[in-house]
């Protein structure tokens, strides 16, 4: 047998149409048409869940009311990425979980408008507890996706 064993190269190209359901659809309807973020309240523990879901995982009951949250909030955690991952965005970029005012949970998105060249300084600027604000893209550019908005730090 040969010592030079072969490798078989493959590439996957799959497509899906994921069912979003009424709760996720309403969240993106409001984001796309009104430029606002909405959450769902659990009638039992009263937490306002953002991003919204049809049920509360802790109480295992259906969520009920829609609550508009933000547009300001607080950074709960963050990272700044300096290494490129295949098929993911070109670094550097910052992202953070921000708990918007009126929400009890945090939602993840990019933090833009920040100088990321110096990691220590960027990390200091993004430290948990820092105030941030929601920025929604121009109406004509919105696609009803999570990338229709991002965060910027408040001065």
């Amino acid at each position: 047998m040969t010592d030079a064993t072969r490798t078989i190269e493959e590439k996957w190209d799959l497509t899906y149409r994921h069912a979003a359901g009424p709760v996720v659809s309403h969240f993106y309807d409001r984001l796309q048409s009104d430029g606002v973020l909405v959450g769902r309240r659990c009638p039992q523990c009263t937490r306002v869940l953002v991003p919204p879901r049809s049920f509360c995982d802790r109480c295992y009951v259906d969520t009920e009311d829609w609550i508009e949250v933000g547009p300001e909030g607080v950074v709960e955690t963050f990272t700044v990425v300096y290494r490129e991952f295949q098929s993911l965005p070109e670094p550097p970029y910052a992202m953070a979980y921000v708990r918007l005012d009126g929400a009890d949970t945090a939602i993840l998105n990019y933090v833009r408008g920040l100088d990321l060249r110096e990691p220590v300084a960027a990390a200091a600027a993004l430290r948990p507890g820092t105030r941030a604000r929601l920025v929604v893209d121009e109406p004509q550019r919105r696609q009803g996706r999570i990338t229709d908005f991002w965060f910027e730090l408040l001065p």
Partner: peptide, 20 residues
């Protein structure tokens, strides 16, 4: 729905754990 379009992976998820 909400998270995959963000560049989450096990490194970034645990980087955010580390920050906390």
């Amino acid at each position: 729905m909400y998270e995959r379009q963000m560049p989450l992976n096990t490194v970034t998820m645990l980087a955010m754990q580390g920050v906390r």
